[in-house]
């Protein structure tokens, strides 16, 4: 169910039917993709968005996960609820919520206007629009993965570090982070895989050009009626994703070994 569509997609982009109707091996579609500046720009903006999201997610989610792991009391339960909440919000609702808040004449503009401040430079329809949406959307999964990794760090190992003189940063750097390296890799792999193939948020919040691979594939397939190039774009996206997939598999295998 998974392998066959992959093989079929690769096959359909490498064996193209000629004018006589006979299929023959050709790299034509790949040559086109990598020689077409528009396709390259789309790939670059996808890689940029994915990288920026991954870079932002870690410093946002790690403090939340650390707080949830070590804090006790009712406030921690509320924070956990808030952190997991985006998981239950459909992407389309989130998109329109972001437009209403950060879009032109949105809530932020209205609030600024009411106190005499100028309008903000809205991230809507810029590459930062999908970044904001995707980061918000991926917080729950990233927090949950990091939290599961932090579960392996016992209270006593942290206390033992403090006992020998380690302050907060030393505990984080020398004791906690080395123990959750695999979880960080898994979290990054998962978010990268999700963000690379995201459609709704980049489609609604992102610019018309360059566009991320998700909307690009969809437009090539439906609007341009060019399934072969759409599949080529999919295979290229898959090739990038599989690198992070292998990161994930390696982390899981390493975990099993230890």
């Amino acid at each position: 169910m998974i392998i066959w569509p992959i093989l079929s997609a690769i096959g359909r982009t490498l064996w193209l039917p000629g004018a006589d109707g006979v299929s023959r091996f050709s790299l034509e579609t790949y040559v086109f993709f990598f020689s077409d500046q528009y396709s390259i720009n789309n790939l670059m903006v996808t890689l940029w968005t994915t990288g920026v999201c991954a870079l932002l997610l870690l410093p946002i989610c790690l403090p939340i996960a650390l707080y949830l792991r070590f804090a006790k009391g009712r406030l921690a339960a509320y924070v956990q609820g808030l952190a997991i909440f985006p998981m239950f919000v459909p992407s389309i609702i989130l998109s329109y919520a972001i437009i209403r808040v950060l879009g032109p004449n949105g809530t932020v503009d209205l609030l600024f206007n009411s106190v005499g401040l100028p309008k903000i430079r809205s991230p809507y329809l810029t590459p930062w629009g999908p970044v904001i949406g995707l980061v918000w959307d991926n917080i729950p999964l990233t927090v949950l993965i990091l939290l599961s990794g932090l579960g392996a760090v016992s209270d006593q190992s942290v206390e033992a570090a403090r006992d020998v003189g380690a302050r907060r940063w030393a505990v984080l750097w020398h004791i906690i982070l080395p123990r959750i390296t695999n979880s960080i890799l898994v979290a990054i792999s998962f978010t990268v895989l999700g963000i690379f193939s995201a459609f709704t948020l980049p489609y609604v919040l992102g610019p018309a050009a360059p566009e991320m691979m998700g909307p690009f594939m969809q437009r090539t397939f439906r609007d341009l009626n060019d399934p072969t190039n759409a599949i080529t774009q999919a295979v290229i996206s898959f090739a990038f994703c599989i690198v992070f997939g292998l990161f994930y598999v390696r982390s899981v295998a390493k975990n099993r070994k230890t």
Binding site: S154, Q156, S157, E159, A160, A161, R162, D163, V164, G165, A166, R167, I175
Partner: peptide, 16 residues
């Protein structure tokens, strides 16, 4: 604890 002149041995060893 990090500034106390004490050393603690935990029940679960708590080795890193």
């Amino acid at each position: 604890p990090e500034r106390r002149p004490t050393g603690m041995v935990f029940q679960s060893h708590a080795l890193w």
